[in-house]
Design a protein around this nucleic acid. Structure first.
Length: 202
DNA sequence: ATAAAGATCATT
DNA sequence: ATGATCTTTATG
């Protein structure tokens, strides 16, 4: 089944919550280290710009790390979390609208053997690509991909004709953002209800 | 210059 | 429950 690559127009919508839901059912691929790997996105989180206390660009915080969030949508924001894990975000919205979607889980379809090597797994199980750190490890995404154009040949997304209405999705609070005070409970984590490949919240 | 915390994962 | 591991950020 051939899909088509998502375009800048898709990424540059103003509504990051809408994009976050629309990304469920899209496919994320990487062609890195000579290996094609990827799968269907089944879990995302929305980070909603300068007024969202959970967002790294909250209150117009503009630093070397957050700089890429202010670019027009369609590039990668990768950062190191807890000193260990690279987390992959899709920058969305127009110029100077620092919104992003965190990719939290995919359902592996392409290059599963390569992903198992990268994850040091001998057997396939549902933890292969569930959790934001696990996704990047399986796909070979690292901090060097900060700013990477998502309409290029290294990391890209495809629409294969699948989409899910809200009734097929589970919306819940985002994970690991206790510092976000009154925004910590916003239901901006989206999971495909029927998928066994989503992450478990702590 | 220093310190604190973090959009996590695997193991015990 | 805990350890791994290190960058970013805020503060002095």
């Amino acid at each position: 089944m051939k899909g088509f690559k998502l375009t800048k127009t898709f990424y540059q919508s103003e509504d990051v919550v809408f994009i976050s839901k629309a990304l469920i059912g899209k496919y994320l691929f990487t062609q890195l280290e000579g290996k094609l790997t990827g799968g269907m996105i089944v879990e995302t989180e929305a980070y909603n710009g300068v007024w969202d206390k959970a967002c790294h660009a909250y209150n117009h915080r503009r630093t070397r790390r957050t700089e890429v969030m202010f670019q027009p949508g369609g590039v990668a924001y990768v950062y190191l979390c807890y000193g260990i894990h690279s987390l992959f975000n899709i920058i969305t919205g127009p110029l100077d609208c620092p919104t992003a979607v965190l990719t939290r889980a995919i359902e592996p379809t392409e290059g599963i053997d390569f992903m198992m090597q990268r994850r040091k797994k001998k057997r396939i199980d549902y933890t292969l690509t569930s959790g934001p750190g696990a996704v990047t490890q399986a796909l070979g995404i690292r901090c060097e991909h900060y700013g990477c154009d998502l309409t290029g040949n290294l990391i890209w997304l495809e629409d294969k004709g699948l989409s899910f209405t809200d009734t097929k999705l589970l919306a819940s609070p985002r994970v690991g953002i206790h510092y976000a005070e009154e925004h910590a409970e916003l239901p901006w984590r989206f999971r495909l209800a029927s998928s066994l490949w989503t992450s478990k919240a702590k």
